[in-house]
Simulated scan of single mutants.
Amino acid sequence: MAILELRDLTKRFGATTAVDHFTLSVEKGEFVSLLGPSGCGKTTTLQMIAGFETPSGGSILLNGRDLRSVPARQRGLGIVFQTYALFPHMTVEENVGFGLEMRKVPGDERRRRIAAALDLVHLSHLSGRYPRQMSGGQRQRVALARALVIEPELLLLDEPLSNLDAKLREEMQLELRRIQQEAGVTTLLVTHDQSEAMALSDRIAVMQGGRLIQEASPFEAYDRPTNAFVSTFLGKSNAIDAHLEETRDDGAVLRCGDIRLAGPPSPARPGPVLISLRPERIELCDAAAAHVSGRVGERIFLGDQWLFKVETSLGELLVVRPNSGRREPEPGETVHLSWRTEHLRILAAEPAA
């Protein structure tokens, strides 16, 4: 059952349409991420749900109740901002309990809920500290506890991890997912970080230019992107210009310059298309088994893996290989590349600029 429904939600600022007929349903207990580049409309969408922006059109339903005429303070939503917005003169306990105090929750009940929220985020032992005495990750958990203590129907997260360094951000992703699952709260996250969205979410809603481009599980969005934008925005991808010559129930025939390739079945019509191929799906092989050969132009060590840029007749291809400790090809070497047919994704060609 959907707890949140956005129906044709639209926001215009003068002649600019920031959110364009956006429709999305979020199920109870689900973790959904709005993912896209800066300026795609994801934060504006969140602000309309929170009540900080007024929609130009469409509706926002929370458990069937239309929120458009409900003031922000009366929507009962938990919100965690990018800056956390903690009160510096209040202790952790006082910060967490502020929303309950504003709601006139009785003292005994307030103390019980504060203690439960602090226990959930593993900060009970720091209840008497002030924000300035805490690390970034701890402050982020205080902000989460403050949002959760009011027992919201919906938790809104506005890039809450973006101010943390890379290692701490990775740790906090695991912590945030644990907290959300233990609390069982329906959560909507706004982020431009693809790995964050994929690590945390049950579903991802990819946005571009104010529109919803693809809505899917992280695996499906990554493995079966609907267009070139999703393919390149969600991780690294090779986009290869091709011509779809024929498509049958058992597969497709593609031509890339002088090279003919077999592809998976595709609903696309014959004509110009793009082939999407993930770098980790490409394997090194013997010359006889190769789809294409090329010369290593660049080799980059990433710790747990190697990234190669290989110059081929299909263009420059990115190839990712796990760091196995064995010798890897060096710049200037000729390598032979292959892949499984089902790992190719045939996408509509991008319109000419």
Rank of each mutant, 00 (worst) to 15 (best):
G136A: 02
H21N: 11
G64K: 08
R73P: 03
A349K: 13
P267D: 14
P329G: 00
F219L: 13
Q181K: 12
K309S: 14
V206S: 09
G263V: 02
F31H: 03
P106H: 11
D250S: 12
L161I: 08
A252I: 04
D202W: 13
R203E: 03
L67G: 03
G78Y: 06
E175F: 10
P160Q: 10
F87P: 03
D193R: 11
G64D: 03
G210I: 02
K11N: 03
A262Y: 14
L24P: 03
R110I: 00
V230M: 09
G39A: 02
E153N: 14
L344C: 03
L157M: 09
L317F: 13
D223I: 08
R295F: 09
R146P: 05
F22R: 08
P272I: 11
L200A: 00
A115D: 10
V121R: 07
Q208P: 03
I259D: 05
Q181H: 12
R146F: 02
L168E: 02
R129Q: 07
L156C: 01
F301M: 14
A348K: 08
L157R: 09
R75W: 02
S69A: 15
D20K: 15
Q180P: 03
E298G: 06
L46N: 05
P218C: 11
R178N: 06
R326K: 15
R132C: 01
V335W: 10
H343Q: 12
W339V: 00
I300S: 08
V230R: 05
W306L: 04
E328T: 10
G325E: 04
K309Q: 15
R326W: 11
R103H: 01
V32M: 08
H122G: 00
P160F: 12
G78V: 07
I213K: 09
D258C: 02
